[in-house]
Amino acid sequence: MTQKRIRRSWVKPASAPNADINVTPLVDVVLVLLIIFMVVTPLMEKDLEVRVPETELEENPPSDPNDTQLVVQVAESGDYSINTEKIAPADYVARLTRMLNTKKQDERVVFFVADDNASYGKLVAAMDGAKAAGAKVLGFAPQEPGGAVVPGATPTEGTAPAPTPPR
């Protein structure tokens, strides 16, 4: 048996090794990411802007809210109350119009307190009725975590801040 000798040959590179970074793929990746962010960013900005006032605890609560404020309560059953006086839904706008007509234009403020289980549609209908009755400012009477209404709002059992629509 004859052995063949294998001859090894080396190929020399035509030029010296290049230690520079190839920038072209980096630019391609950055441009693709830029396009993705430009497309996605407008889709993320579909939030509702809400201005929440800062709260302060008052030492002396204001006088009887029945004399100074109008607080509309929406019960779980959908019944309306104005300053703890129950009102039939058919008489709500007429009664609120009479009450608001006794106030100055810049003092026509109506606060709303809704039960946790109250229908969101009933709350919106109450707010629309208040606007139709001549209210200039609508607000929600806040409620403390313990269930007591903050001073200035009419306390009733089982009331809560207005429900918020799901996002």
Results as ranks from 00 to 15, higher is better:
Gln143His: 07
Glu144Val: 09
Val110Arg: 01
Asp28Asn: 11
Lys104Gln: 14
Ser119His: 12
Tyr80Gln: 00
Pro61Thr: 08
Thr84Val: 10
Lys86Trp: 03
Glu56Asp: 10
Met127Gly: 05
Val71Ala: 01
Leu43Lys: 07
Gln143Lys: 13
Met127Ala: 10
Leu70Phe: 06
Thr68Trp: 04
Leu123Asn: 04
Tyr92Met: 02
Val124Cys: 07
Pro61Met: 05
Glu49Ser: 10
Thr24Tyr: 13
Gly129Ser: 00
Asn66Phe: 04
Pro53His: 01
Val39Gly: 04
Leu33Val: 15
Arg51Phe: 06
Asp47Met: 07
Met99His: 06
Asp47Lys: 09
Met127Tyr: 07
Leu70Ala: 04
Ile35Val: 15
Val50Ser: 03
Leu57Asn: 06
Ala118His: 08
Asp28Ser: 09
Lys131Glu: 03
Met99Lys: 13
Leu123Val: 13
Ser81Lys: 04
Asn66Lys: 12
Phe140Asp: 10
Met38Ile: 15
Ile35Gly: 08
Pro89Tyr: 00
Glu56Ser: 13
Pro42His: 06
Ile35Arg: 07
Ala132Val: 00
Gly139Asp: 12
Met127Leu: 06
Asn60Gly: 05
Asp116Thr: 13
Leu138Ser: 02
Lys122Pro: 06
Leu33Gly: 11
Val52Gly: 03
Ser77Gln: 13
Val30Arg: 13
Glu76Phe: 07
Ile82Met: 09
Val32Glu: 07
Pro62Leu: 14
Val74Cys: 09
Gln69Cys: 08
Glu58Met: 10
Glu107Cys: 05
Gly121Phe: 12
Ser81Phe: 07
Leu138Ile: 08
Ala94Lys: 02
Pro53Gly: 01
Val30Met: 15
Phe112Glu: 04
Tyr92Asn: 02
Lys103Ala: 10
Ala130Leu: 01
